[in-house]
Amino acid sequence: MYQLIKQIIKTGIKTDAAPLPDETLRVTAQRLHEEILHVFGSALNIRHVDAGSCNGCELEIHALSNAYYNIEGLGIKFVASPRHADMLLVTGPVSRHMVTALRRTFDATPEPRLVVAIGECACNGGIFCTNDGSPDGGGESYASCGRVANVIPVDVVVGGCPPTPTAILQGILTAVSAQK
């Protein structure tokens, strides 16, 4: 026990300052009212859904919980059930085999719900899909439906392969901050 406590004291506090919201990540008009944001207060529950990612984006979502980003310190918590969630964090191109599970998870999340698409794949299908050449891509394949927005409505997208924890945090904060 002595060693353990000594190690905790020696480690000290490592947490970095949180990033500011970034309006350019927003893809839809804000669907939330000021009051609701007020209700969310400084507590936000997130349910993560891997809809077919390579697991790279998950690594960075895990990193959000480390002492440097300390996401729980901001009042943001990952929860086990969509029924407890205010926000879905969705990664990956949506594989056709995950469409039903993703839709059901979305339906089980109480309104008002926010959806943040994490990573290049979630934004436009990424490397796994042939893009059709249109400006926002969204390509499909026999096994994949492409971007998350092809399956459920998305509020904020965060690109990057994988996006850094800071970028993910910024996306989350953008989604919960009222539109200017």
Binding site: D50, G52, H97, A143
Partner: peptide, 11 residues
């Protein structure tokens, strides 16, 4: 398994 099958080999 097979839920994340996204057609990598075909790609």
């Amino acid at each position: 398994f097979g839920y994340t099958h996204k057609g990598i080999e075909k790609r």
